[in-house]
Design a protein around this nucleic acid. Structure first.
Length: 160
DNA sequence: GCCAACGTTGGC
DNA sequence: GCCAACGTTGGC
């Protein structure tokens, strides 16, 4: 079981939008970065924990919890000429881009960037690294546990 | 709107 | 394979 932080622009798909989806899940389409894609195809497993992060918005930060709900499979939008994510170099026979499904777990309070940066325990959180632009980043067990405790207002030592 | 940082492209 | 130019990301 691993943990991930996945960025979504709330104007595209907010945590509330995810909660309102049929089945409360959505294909994580539109990833067009090889490193992020490889996380989905090579390192994610069904059931992995996801920090749902709102980016490019007035209040960037963690907005909820989700779960990886499928193996990776070809991202439909790469084949659709009308999609902004269309990739003319992709074909059904040779897809370039993949996505997993992500399922809603909970909406949380907004944990903003300033708050995340204020905790020394999160000094190495990938999404906080200078110049980071990856839309999917790994989260360590300790980081996951610490952030959950922040959300639950609990002491990390009391939670396993 | 600015701009730092990074990924991708394409000429050589 | 190098690297300059360009496009994109994303916080501020």
């Amino acid at each position: 079981m691993r943990y991930w932080l996945m960025k979504s622009e709330p104007a595209e798909c907010s945590i509330d939008d995810l909660a309102a989806m049929p089945g409360r899940r959505v294909p994580w389409f539109g990833v067009r970065n090889y490193q992020a894609r490889n996380f989905m195809t090579r390192e994610m497993s069904v059931g992995d924990g996801v920090l749902f992060y709102h980016s490019s918005c007035p209040q960037p930060g963690i907005a909820g919890l989700a779960r990886v709900a499928s193996e990776a499979y070809p991202d439909e939008t790469q084949f659709d000429p009308d999609s902004p994510y269309f990739d003319p170099k992709a074909s059904r026979d040779a897809p370039r881009w993949q996505n997993v499904d992500v399922a809603f777990v909970a909406k949380t309070r907004l944990v903003g960037l300033a708050e995340l940066r204020a905790h020394p325990e999160l000094a190495d959180l990938r999404v906080l690294a200078r110049g980071n632009r990856l839309s999917i980043t790994p989260v360590t067990n300790d980081e996951w546990r610490f952030i959950l405790c922040q959300l639950l207002d609990a002491d990390p030592d009391d939670v396993q």
